[in-house]
Design a protein around this nucleic acid. Sequence first.
DNA 1: GTCTATAAGGGGATAGAC
DNA 2: GTCTATCCCCTTATAGAC
Lengths: 209, 209
Amino acid sequence: MEQTKMRILSAAAKLFDIHGYQGTSVRKIAEEADVNVALISYHFQGKQGVLETLMASYFETLFRLLGEQEATLASAPVWQRLEQVVRLYVQFHCEHAAITRLIQRELSVESMLAREVMTLYMSRYKHGLASVLEYGIGTGEFQTCSVDRVVLGVTSHIVYPLLHPQMVRQVYELEPASEEFSDWLYTSVLDFLRVSLLPDSRSSTLFHE
Amino acid sequence: MEQTKMRILSAAAKLFDIHGYQGTSVRKIAEEADVNVALISYHFQGKQGVLETLMASYFETLFRLLGEQEATLASAPVWQRLEQVVRLYVQFHCEHAAITRLIQRELSVESMLAREVMTLYMSRYKHGLASVLEYGIGTGEFQTCSVDRVVLGVTSHIVYPLLHPQMVRQVYELEPASEEFSDWLYTSVLDFLRVSLLPDSRSSTLFHE
DNA sequence: GTCTATAAGGGGATAGAC
DNA sequence: GTCTATCCCCTTATAGAC
């Protein structure tokens, strides 16, 4: 049943986030989902299938949202488009913090199981931001700079705090899942982009080749 | 024997980095170290003891280096002290990239084994950077800002690329272990700090409360 | 300090009944 | 689609010989 698959995915997302992928057994997932163990293999061909399904659905959702936005903003001024893309990235990561954490963590394991699947997703993931930056540089509205490095800077800013929610709670006294946190992150990243991309900025070699 | 302990620690650091802590078995560590399995329990009271020893030695080394630097630079101008502290952090993280990756990854697991041990280390870890910033703000040489947020920004910048060495290789065409990468990271972080801390910067709300 | 042998348990996956 | 029972492998840790 479709409901069973959803229960398994929810339970797995929760436990993978708390204990890590390797630290979670299919038995624990079944228990948390209140579902028989064998159903995990039946519906997802095993534990790795659950992970891959989670990742796929995460990225497909992000790409769908990016596509929808692209359609409505295609002719808007480039800075406004950048603002909207950044807002989408920040909100998406915050809303799906647990899976973001899971993906980023597993991605840092060199012998990751689903590495081939991931490289494809990551390339489209980067392109969502990079394409707007490249367009702005092309029209001369943005300073010439290394797009790759700016994208890495933005990603670091957004993702790193999500990787350590307990630190964010202590240091920021902000709930990582809250709207305040999301808003603050959005403002920070835009400031960073302003400094990196807009001319009339004071002399800085930041992210410029 | 002391050599045996070192062989185990080296092997464990390598395998934990490649496969993750949970993904590495004591048998594989023993094999990689060319040492009998039982010696891991004998010398480190089990697998977790190896992890804790690695983490402890990592932080003790960093804190010792910070202390030595503090002693020689105590009376230097604050911006120069900041430069030296940042250089130390960047170089240290790059030189010990594998253990940095391991620690940051395991730290993002909510049910991490050695969490109590870690919180103590992390507080001193942050203080190394924060103390210089606070001093500079106190003398009025740095703009008033949220020290915690600047420290998080710096940490994100340094650590995130190290978490994804394969991405760095593709995107930057730089070897994450190389001196060029370390130098670039140093320059980037200093630029970031200049924008965040020094007055006469163009209007930016970045990291200011 | 080092080794062998073994204990005691948990892991993922599946065959076959319903 | 769901469940039970089971297989087989690998895990960590340790007792006891050397």
